[in-house]
């Protein structure tokens, strides 16, 4: 089943800009689905609003294109409604962690079996290049014409602190690792967070003179390192890739079934 069977071909070529990392995330994600051999009827993809969230239009699953920042809340309803479904929630960095931050931390806290993919291009692309909570201090954007004074937070640490039981990070350059991580994230029973550093050459790249998509992907190679590597010790500025958290924790739908059991017995 080549990945062509998983896309809605009639809507291609897709709308993402030339060199945008989101297409690579889509490809890696579909290869993960292929590896898992999941049936298309069992997958629900729930996305928010933004460049990354248009991904739902391109995949041949049950797709729910919701509201900016609210994908995880919708997804919680879908999952609790039919726990057998595999729920994938791709979001942008602003979508997941700015307006959607409250739902992100609480969905993690509940540890409901949902796979969240944070497609972090550190910008609001759809609306034209404004800085996002993940842009980072000092960058430039259409709303940070001088320099950005907003500090970003570490998505992996935030997800871990909030209670996600699977947390990983990789980049669009490391597409093999991305496919493998997404495969493990979907298999994991519990809330999985996969942060993907994905390039936005049109706005982030141009506004910050980083160059083309190719240049940005080269930076992903140079600026990141496997978790706990020697390089990281020598150069703490390197961003670590890999799986940070992978532990078995009670899953929300399973826990709720215990309540139903108790209620039905005593009733």
């Amino acid at each position: 089943m080549p990945i062509k069977d998983y896309i809605r071909e009639r809507y291609f070529p897709h709308l993402w800009c030339s060199g945008c990392g989101h297409g690579i995330v889509l490809g890696s994600f579909l290869r993960a689905i292929q590896q898992l051999g999941l049936s298309k009827n069992e997958i629900v993809m729930v996305s928010g609003i933004g460049c990354s969230s248009r991904i739902t239009g391109y995949v041949d699953f049950h797709t729910l294109h919701t509201l900016h920042g609210r994908a995880l809340a919708f997804a919680t309803g879908v999952k609790m409604g039919l726990p057998e479904l595999n729920i994938i929630v791709p979001m942008g960095d602003g979508d997941a962690l700015a307006i959607g931050g409250n739902h992100f931390i609480h969905t993690a806290r509940r540890n409901i079996d949902i796979t969240a993919i944070v497609m972090n291009n550190r910008i609001y692309g759809m609306t034209g290049g404004q800085f996002s909570p993940l842009s980072g201090y000092g960058i430039k954007a259409t709303t940070a014409p001088y320099f950005n004074i907003d500090h970003d937070f570490d998505v992996v640490e935030l997800a871990t602190a909030a209670g996600a039981s699977f947390v990983a990070r990789t980049t669009t350059y490391h597409e093999k690792q991305l496919t493998n991580i997404i495969t493990k994230a979907i298999q994991h029973v519990g809330f999985s967070v996969v942060e993907v550093l994905t390039q936005c050459p049109t706005y982030f790249g141009r506004k910050n003179d980083i160059g083309s998509a190719v240049d940005m992907m080269k930076l992903y190679k140079e600026k990141t390192t496997p978790r706990g590597s020697k390089a990281k010790k020598e150069n703490p500025d390197l961003i670590e890739r890999g799986i940070f958290v992978q532990k078995e924790m009670p899953e929300y739908c399973n826990e709720y079934n215990k309540i139903i059991e108790k209620a039905m017995k005593g009733h």
């Binding site: 609210r70 809340a73 919708f74 997804a75 919680t76 309803g77 879908v78 609480h106």
Partner: peptide
């Protein structure tokens, strides 16, 4: 489901209605 706010509450029931 008790959600984290009212926005999440209405979004969750819309999701569940679809199942």
């Amino acid at each position: 489901l008790q959600m984290e706010d009212e926005i999440a509450s209405i979004c969750a029931i819309i999701g569940a209605s679809l199942t």
